[in-house]
Amino acid sequence: MKQKKGFFKQGMGEFMEGAIAMLFLITLLILLISFTMLHTAGGAMEYAVSVIGREIVTCTSLEDARRTAQEQAELILGDSRTMPRDAIRADVGYAPGSDTEWEKGNFVFVTITAELHNLMPVTSGTKEVSDLVMIEYTGGNR
């Protein structure tokens, strides 16, 4: 078979134009999916810090609250591809201006920090969510 001279030159501009447009559209689609995953992960973290905050207010000590917060954070958030279980950190600390004793009426911050792994490096990174709660433990049985 003999090819015509210039066979590959005809229509090549339209092909390149279509290929570049497709790459651009696929990149935008992946970016949109990444931002959706980031928003979903942020919502899950806010839900988790709220649930954990309600759970720790009845703990017996700060150490017990920290242990409970870490366990609950891994339990609630650990099943996600976006946040691996070993990249989730939960911490409980006394709020500024509050007494540093675990007693009813004092305020503590519950903070969850997670390393988010996403499709695009632009939307990956560390996200932190915190909540302020008041200790309700009265020294009796839970």
Rank of each mutant, 00 (worst) to 15 (best):
K4D: 07
T27L: 06
R81Q: 12
G42C: 06
L119A: 14
L116H: 05
Q10P: 03
M134H: 08
K127P: 03
E17Y: 12
A69Y: 05
A90G: 08
G18K: 03
L32S: 12
S130I: 06
V110R: 00
Q70P: 09
L116N: 05
R54L: 11
Y47F: 14
K127D: 10
T68W: 04
T60L: 04
I33F: 04
P121M: 10
T82F: 09
K2V: 10
D86P: 08
Q70Y: 12
M1L: 12
T27F: 03
M83E: 07
G125L: 11
A44L: 08
L29F: 04
M83W: 05
V57N: 00
G78R: 09
L28I: 03
L31D: 00
P84R: 11
S130C: 12
V92S: 00
M83H: 07
F107E: 01
Y47I: 09
P96V: 01
E103R: 00
I76W: 13
V133H: 03
T36F: 05
E46S: 14
D79S: 15
S124L: 09
R67F: 06
F109N: 04
L77V: 14
E74A: 13
W102M: 02
A90W: 02
I76N: 10
E74R: 15
L38T: 01
G11V: 12
A69D: 06
E17A: 15
I30Q: 03
L75M: 15
S50W: 05
A48N: 09
L25C: 01
G53C: 05
M134R: 15
R67D: 10
E63Q: 07
G97S: 04
S130V: 07
P96G: 00
F15W: 05
A19G: 02
R81V: 10
E128A: 15
T138K: 11
M83Y: 07
A90L: 08
L23C: 07
F107C: 00
Q72D: 14
T82R: 06
G140A: 13
V129E: 14
A73H: 04
A69V: 10
I30W: 02
G97M: 00
A41Y: 02
T40N: 11
Q10M: 14
Q3H: 12
G139L: 06
S98F: 01
E128I: 15
M120T: 15
L32C: 09
A90N: 06
L31W: 03
T36M: 06
P96S: 04
T40D: 11
L75S: 15
I56H: 00
F24C: 07
M12E: 10
R89P: 03
A87T: 15
E71M: 13
M1D: 13
F8E: 07
L62Y: 04
S80E: 13
Q72W: 07
R85G: 08
E115G: 13
V51N: 06
V129N: 13
D64I: 02
F109D: 02
A69E: 05
